[in-house]
């Protein structure tokens, strides 16, 4: 099975019905993407497939054959963090941190589609992502903050 992860071509030999999540974590050692529920209920496993946010725990790897996957490890440019990651730090959003990779991937996909999201847009895009520490208000703040900065940066 060949596909692209964070700009790099990979070739894994696994049964096609293996969820993308476990290919990323156990075969490619990309452990930033997390397992939370296994049934697309919590969003901890959110990655991008051709730019769209998907739940990798219910995505058979055969579906990503020949396509481009982006994970949390692919956001920063070397030491330079993505503006959303910087906004997350400025808002001190994470607590335990386990869900945050998925939250951030959902937020990146949202801002790519809707550069100036309303609270309702954030509700719609981020409600698939659970946070047991309930950091939601700070995540909302971080998204607004990142949107403003990305607009300013043009």
């Amino acid at each position: 099975m060949k596909f692209v992860v964070n700009g790099t071509s990979v070739d894994v030999s696994v049964p096609g019905d293996t969820p993308l999540l476990w290919v990323l974590r156990d075969h490619l050692d990309l452990t930033g993407t997390k397992f939370g529920c296994g049934m697309a209920q919590c969003g901890a496993c959110t990655v991008h497939l051709d730019g769209r946010a998907i739940r990798s725990c219910v995505t058979p790897v055969v579906e990503v054959s020949g396509r481009a996957v982006r994970t949390i490890e692919g956001l920063a440019d070397g030491e330079q963090l993505h503006p959303i990651q910087e906004a997350w730090i400025a808002a001190a959003a994470p607590q335990c941190g386990y869900c945050q990779s998925g939250q951030i991937m959902s937020a990146v996909a949202l801002l790519a589609a809707v550069p100036s999201p309303t609270d309702a847009d954030i509700d719609a895009a981020l409600s698939p992502n659970l946070c047991r520490c309930a950091t939601y208000p700070r995540i909302r703040e971080a998204i607004h903050r990142a949107a403003a900065r990305m607009r300013d940066a043009g």
């Binding site: 990309l30 920063a76 963090l81 001190a92 945050q100």
Partner: peptide
């Protein structure tokens, strides 16, 4: 918090 960068880059190591 000194764990923020690790927790927004996916590099924080959990038991899993």
């Amino acid at each position: 918090r000194n764990d923020l960068r690790a927790k927004v880059t996916g590099t924080a190591q959990f038991g899993v």
